[in-house]
Design a binder for these strands. Sequence first.
RNA 1: GAGGGGGUAGCUCAGCCGGUAGAGCGCGGGACUGUGGAUCCCGAGGUCGCGGGUUCGAAUCCCGCCCCCCUCCCCA
Length: 433
Amino acid sequence: MRLKPPSGFRDFEPRDMILRKRVISTLENIFLRYGFDPIETPVIEHWEVFEGKYGEEAETKLMYRFKDPWSDKWFALRFDLTVPMARFFSLKRPSLPFKRYHIGRVWRHERPQKGRYREFWQADVDTVGSPYPEADAELLDLSINAMLKLGFRNFVIKLNDRRVLKGIFEEELALSNVIEVYRAIDKLDKIGYEGVKTELRKIGLNEETVNKLLEIISKEYDVEKNIIDLVDQFPKNKNVRDGINHLSSIIEYLGSNKKYVTFSLNLVRGLDYYTGPVWEIILKDIQIGSVAGGGRYDNLIEKYAGASYPATGISFGVERLIDAGKQLGLFKTEKSTFTEIYIISMTPKAYKMAWSIARELRDNGFFVQIDLMRRSERKQREYASKKGIPLTIIIGEKELSTNEITIYLRETGERITAKRKELINVLKARIKK
RNA sequence: GAGGGGGUAGCUCAGCCGGUAGAGCGCGGGACUGUGGAUCCCGAGGUCGCGGGUUCGAAUCCCGCCCCCCUCCCCA
């Protein structure tokens, strides 16, 4: 019997879960501040729901799909949370704008490596109904706040627009194999200009086109002013103009937060459903890929709903945030229990008193443990301190006779004596509830 | 799918010019009899990834397979 989970799947110990829950609730709290509400959808969907949404490679190689042996129907595990949301929206037709978040697992059958798993959590935030840049800007603003709240400082949001790419490469340069070209320029950060040059030649572009292309993508475009240059370069192209205008508006709404944003003509993103602005959050100090990604997908929902609904969203990669935060020393997995109080009993008689105190404390909302192993007082104390339980209560003959309780605070080594009747209040002063 | 590294106790690993297994941590218990995350003692736990070959004898040498990690690809 193999006890290890399948490749790319993981078990989480309490110490892992305590950190995960903290990260997730931080994100959730930010989402709520911007007025997004939670939904849940099933982990599997009918295959047809996913068909034609993500692109060829995702569908043929990366999705977990299977034929249900009982019904003979094709199903698949969800690949992201955006497409299930689109289905959900089309079924329920909530009022607009529909602002929802969804934190849950998704599955991708890729080769696992650092920061990449086959089962991982996404924290996805989307707005349906608004075609305007303010909806995109709100998500970027939210993202910046979320990153800051988690403790990240040195990050950048790379921003681009699919229409700009389309206008320049498909219309102006009339390239036929754009997908390959996009892939090549997407690698710019990794392999540099010379690397991209080699890739483009490999694709079969002539030298003139290669040079022109490199000239365009190698320019540093300032998010406020110089992106307008692009419009000047292609004055008659509507897609370029629309894209740039949209991006300019987003930047304007961001105000001082625009310092976290950079215009990246080499940002492409793989998923097929994006139609306008796209973005990715990159950590500068750490090589882990992007920790979040998203964009506008104005045509996706129409495939389910019949009518057109513009939408935009972003997904945070929970494991990447955690892995990166751990590596940067922002997060620690030292806590292995939520328990706040351990009650040590010295004798069987004292154990009865300990039991009744435990009940009282639990009734008052404290997280309490008491010995269940009939262990010695010494072993109970060892257990409490090994688990990192911050507060210990000791019950022995002395307490039984005087009706006073001894409280030991592990971190400071401080000892407090409290009358039995005042115990709850003394504890409440020490542990915020 | 391609390349690299690795699989020995729950974890991290040592042992590998062949003589059927060790450490540290962890885990369980005890001494210490009330404020000690201490110290000391004892103990449990391993088909040395799987199968075959060479050999009197294989964790160690040879072959095949499986799995894990890293990189590429792609992405969160």
